[in-house]
Design a protein around this nucleic acid. Structure first.
Lengths: 234, 234
DNA sequence: AAAATAACATGACAATTATCATCTTAATAA
DNA sequence: TTATTAAGATGATAATTGTCATGTTATTTT
């Protein structure tokens, strides 16, 4: 009894439990989860898994920020998605029964839990709400991916940079000094908007000169959100 | 009894039943499906649904070809996906409980069946294999979308055209005269690869001159698949 | 602290791609 | 059939973006 409570607390109070598909799990399922999960700490720059690897489960992001990306032939790293605490990672490969299509690396030190596939399949078979949640989460990813695909073609690099800065602001918020909380290198930022690092740097300079943003060392502060929005949309 | 058989045949023999997530349905479910579906014929150019519309169900594509696209501010139509017979349409919006994110139009005369959401939810709640199939189908779309997103950034227009021609050949096959079976206008082809119509036409001319393809009127014949593959990959 | 490396920045230039104009050919409507 | 419109084609040009070179400023490592 005592032990059960201890084990349960581990997962029950977890932010991932509260925010992800896992919120549909009942008490017993959470207890089961707590006993089957493994916790890892991933240092900034390290990989959770690489493209082509068989993961056989999903990762819960308890803390930190990760990126899902794919290396191109010419050595450029295209970032497909950023993940933050509360989210699950590796759902798609697991469901499709395929090796990872993308590489997952930590952008900020991460704390993650690994849930083996057998466990997830169990939940999936016995808890309809859980599978509906998971499905909706994949659908959300699909919608985002499609919209980004369209933006990639229909918008200029400048527009995409403005859009991405706003996104990062919305999703990750700002530090005490009002700069963006996610610390991306210019190269990573370029990898998100899909452009050359130099082009990204140049546009950041332009935005800075125009008063849209302010460059505080390597950090970025949004100064004129309205103007950025206007730039991004039109 | 007699009637049941007639009704059941309608859906049981259907290509969509055989190829899509619906293949997991059992006899009773197929009978239920047959009585709740509605059949439509959509002429080339007509829309099944438009961006922003609430669809409240999924479409089964029995025959023809459709495109999922989004109109940009500058009037260009970015094509996100082509659908052919055997596939389902509108799954994502239904699962996410959202209005359509994209517009679905017929590229070739279509015959479709509409299955109301209530019916799908029913299958979903009572048939685990069905929901797993549906989930995998969405995952497949997600993977494709992500890979196309990457290609859009990392490849040139020329590479993307080569890639798309090969894709169309693989997916839709060729007519008796060896030309591509899907009849896309140059504008639509440009909408898939994400470029200006003129650029697309120009590159087709180049490919023609290089002997990679042959332009038979408005139709396209692939002449050197190997060279096209090489062009697309590298 | 000095050296080495990585990240950031900017100029010069080249390549790619879009835009606009114009023309031809094919499809559709009158 | 002729007129009208849509689709395809091509040239000229401009705009955007990428590449290479080089310099500066931070960060790490020794």
């Amino acid at each position: 009894m005592q032990q059960t409570n201890i084990v349960m607390n581990k997962c029950d109070q977890c932010i991932v439990r509260q925010l992800s598909s896992l919120k549909a799990l009942n008490k017993e399922e959470v207890i089961k989860l707590a006993s089957s999960k493994t916790t890892y700490k991933i240092k900034k720059g390290e990989a959770l898994f690489e493209e082509g690897e068989v993961t056989n489960g999903v990762f819960c992001v308890k803390d930190g920020v990760g990126k899902l990306s794919k290396l191109s032939a010419n050595g450029k790293d295209q970032i497909v998605k950023l993940v933050k605490s509360g989210e699950l990672l590796g759902q798609r490969s697991m469901i499709s029964n395929e090796p990872a299509n993308l590489t997952a690396k930590a952008i900020a030190d991460m704390e993650v839990c690994f849930i083996p596939k057998t466990e997830i399949i169990n939940f999936f078979n016995n808890n309809n709400q859980f599978s509906l949640n998971m499905m909706q989460s994949v659908c959300e990813d699909l919608k985002e991916s499609e919209n980004e695909k369209i933006a990639l073609v229909q918008k200029t690099v400048k527009q995409r940079l403005a859009e991405t800065l706003l996104h990062l602001h919305d999703e990750f918020g700002e530090d005490a000094d009002k700069t963006l909380k996610v610390q991306l290198t210019r190269e990573e930022l370029a990898g998100i908007i899909g452009t050359a690092t130099e082009s990204c740097i140049r546009l950041l300079s332009d935005f800075n000169k125009l008063g849209l943003i302010e460059l505080v060392g390597k950090k970025i502060m949004l100064k004129d959100v309205r103007a950025l929005k206007k730039l991004a949309d039109n």
